[in-house]
Nucleic acid binder design. Structure first.
Lengths: 296, 296
DNA sequence: GTGAAAGCGCTAACAC
DNA sequence: GTGTTAGCGCTTTCAC
């Protein structure tokens, strides 16, 4: 042992992993790293892993189901001891979720599919969307639009449902034209949102993801509409400086760090058999922060 | 081979790595993942790696030299085939850089130490800081403050030098009180910046990192100073929506994605011996975007 | 071409 | 305790 220290001996991790049949590595599969929510969640995951002396492999799907499938399948080799995943919104088969789950401990975080069982750490998407919509109603909005996203995922479905139920319970119309779909972060999105605002003239908008809310600022500038006078806006977002926008943006702030932390912590409990429920959804509360963009 | 396919055979990566003495994995060591610049760079790196069928291990140092040293040392085991690193600002010895570099291909990106040799992908920090300062002078500023960061790194030193030289060449004073040091993202930072503004009354500020610029917005609010009338502000930043801030923030935008892409691409060239210069600095140009926060 | 065998560096098991 | 050994699953070499 003295000799080892003196020679700066570092054991070969592959030999060790091969022999012990474990990798001391976990995989994190996310749509994008360059996103406030995911980079914060990854930060938390990485910290938990480091404390346990585990390594973290990062994979980005860019929302592609094919890429997701190929990553997941490659993990079947035993390269990692566990998987944390926030699934892609473009779905291309789902068999691999089950396949991986049978072999390796796995935790879904933030996003999930209703028809896939598993341990899931999510936020209260339905309540958040409902409450945010109610907040718009309370601020005086009558024609509330919804910028939809993640529609293939439970996450997106619940947000939409919360919006719709809130409208219904306030006896507000919920016509199809008020819901903008299929406009995830590609370029046409910006003009689509602009067209939506100028044609439908909503006086309130709930955006289901941050990437669709910021284009509203640009659209309103171009259309010479004033936020919040002409249009009130609230969005799911983890922008840390929403308060500095012009006007300050009301947000539904998801506890990104806590989700990552909780998901990773549970994964490690699964490793050490201190976790027994293979099919549970834990929901953390999001935080609605009311700012000037929804002021009446 | 047919059989293999039919049974969904996935080769054991550890056995393979052990035998072939290579891991098909690269390490990325960054201060923080949750940072616009680094998450974009990581995004690029991950894409290059994926195209080459490589895996990416992520490590965060949280600016700690000790953590950095322990990660780097552990890489000596052969766990990864190459390293991309943006060093921590708190330095605790530097021997390990040389040690790792002797054994594994390694590329510095964005940040580096002047006294460590190696392949380095940086931006034109000196020019950017000089030009940004000149821009403040051109906008009429006479008392220009500098929010310093990364002072142990070449990156920070060059930015400071660019600021100082620009002042000198414009015959403006460059007294010590105008440079705020040691205020990296901890909480006291905000009050320190506020005190600085209220005591020194600068009419212009160049911030060397985004994390120090946004507190200026809050400080000005509290001090009831108007940006840009009372104080003009420009900062190094990769905030994608600087334009939406109130007022829109002038930024020195570093090509984060390109830096990550270039660094990873060169690392792979080193793997295949298509890269011969072990000691070169490649500098990419940053882009100064002038917005309302520096309007005269 | 086809097949057998050695060995990468560890660790766990077993014999002493 | 202390020392020896087998074998994790590949890949490469070498013999045919």
């Amino acid at each position: 042992m003295e000799m080892a220290k003196k020679l700066n001996y570092e054991p070969n991790p592959f030999a060790s992993s091969l022999r012990r049949q474990q990798s001391k590595t976990i995989a994190v599969i996310v749509p994008e790293v360059a996103n406030n929510f995911f980079s914060l969640a990854i930060k938390a995951i990485e910290e938990v892993a480091r404390a346990k002396d585990y390594h973290v492999l990062i994979y980005q799907t860019h929302e592609s189901g094919e890429i997701e499938a190929s990553f997941m399948t490659s993990l079947l080799s035993g390269r990692v001891d566990g998987v944390l995943i926030s699934p892609a919104s473009h779905v291309a088969g789902k068999e691999y979720f089950q396949k991986v789950r049978e072999k390796i401990p796995m935790v879904f975080f933030d996003r999930d599919h209703a028809d896939i069982e598993g341990v899931k750490i999510t936020t209260d998407d339905y309540d958040s969307a409902y409450n945010a919509t109610q907040h718009l109603v309370d601020a005086g909005c009558k024609t509330i639009g919804y910028l939809a996203a993640l529609e293939t995922l439970t996450t997106g479905k619940k947000r939409l449902q919360g919006y719709q139920d809130a409208l219904k319970n306030n006896n507000l119309m919920c016509r199809a034209g008020l819901i903008v779909s299929n406009c995830e972060n590609n370029e046409p999105c910006r003009s689509k949102i602009k067209d939506f605002i100028s044609e439908q003239r909503p006086d309130g908008i709930l955006s289901s993801i941050e990437e669709l809310a910021l284009p509203c600022y640009y659209a309103c500038k171009e259309l010479q509409l004033n936020i919040p006078k002409d249009l009130k806006l609230i969005t799911f977002s983890n922008l840390s400086h929403a308060e500095l926008l012009n006007p300050p943006l009301s947000t539904i702030n998801q506890p990104a760090f806590e989700i990552g932390d909780e998901a990773a912590t549970i994964l490690f409990k699964m490793f050490s058999k201190r976790w027994y429920d293979p099919n549970i959804t834990i929901s953390l509360k999001s935080n609605i922060i009311k700012r000037e963009s929804t002021q009446s």
